[in-house]
Amino acid sequence: MTLDEKGKQYLLESIRDIPDFPKPGIVFKDITTLLNNKEAYKFLMDHLEQRYKDMNLEYIAGLDARGFIFGAALADRLGIGFVPVRKKGKLPSTTVCEKYELEYGFDEVEIHIDAFDNKEGARVLIIDDLCATGGTANAACKLVTATKANLIEVCFLMNLKFLKGDEKIKQHAAVYSVLDI
Rank of each mutant, 00 (worst) to 15 (best):
M1C: 10
M1H: 13
T2F: 01
T2W: 00
L3N: 05
E5C: 05
K6A: 15
G7R: 15
K8C: 07
Q9A: 04
Y10G: 00
L11Y: 13
E13H: 13
S14T: 08
R16K: 15
R16L: 06
R16D: 05
D17M: 01
P19G: 01
K23R: 10
P24T: 10
G25A: 10
F28I: 03
F28G: 00
K29C: 06
D30G: 02
D30A: 07
N37V: 01
K38D: 03
E39F: 13
E39Y: 14
Y41A: 11
K42W: 05
F43V: 02
D46S: 10
L48N: 02
R51Y: 14
Y52F: 13
K53G: 00
K53V: 03
D54L: 09
M55V: 02
M55R: 09
N56A: 10
E58W: 10
A61Y: 06
A61S: 12
G62L: 10
F68I: 08
I69Y: 09
F70M: 12
F70L: 14
G71M: 04
A73P: 01
L74T: 02
A75Q: 07
R77Y: 10
R77E: 11
F82P: 00
F82Y: 15
F82D: 00
V83W: 08
K88I: 09
K90A: 01
P92I: 14
S93H: 13
S93N: 06
T94W: 02
C97P: 00
C97F: 00
E98S: 14
K99T: 15
E101Q: 11
L102C: 06
F106G: 00
E108Y: 15
E108N: 13
E108V: 03
V109G: 02
I111N: 01
H112W: 12
H112F: 12
I113D: 05
I113T: 14
A115S: 13
E120T: 15
E120V: 14
E120A: 14
R123E: 03
R123S: 07
V124Y: 09
L125V: 07
I126E: 04
I126S: 11
I127W: 07
C131A: 06
G134F: 05
T136E: 01
A137L: 15
A137F: 03
N138F: 04
A139K: 12
A140G: 07
V144Q: 04
A146C: 02
K148H: 14
L151M: 11
I152K: 08
C155V: 09
C155P: 01
N159Y: 12
N159A: 10
L160K: 10
K161L: 14
F162E: 04
L163P: 01
L163S: 09
L163D: 11
G165D: 05
D166G: 12
E167K: 15
K168R: 13
K170M: 13
Y176K: 07
L179S: 08
D180I: 08
D180V: 13
I181H: 02
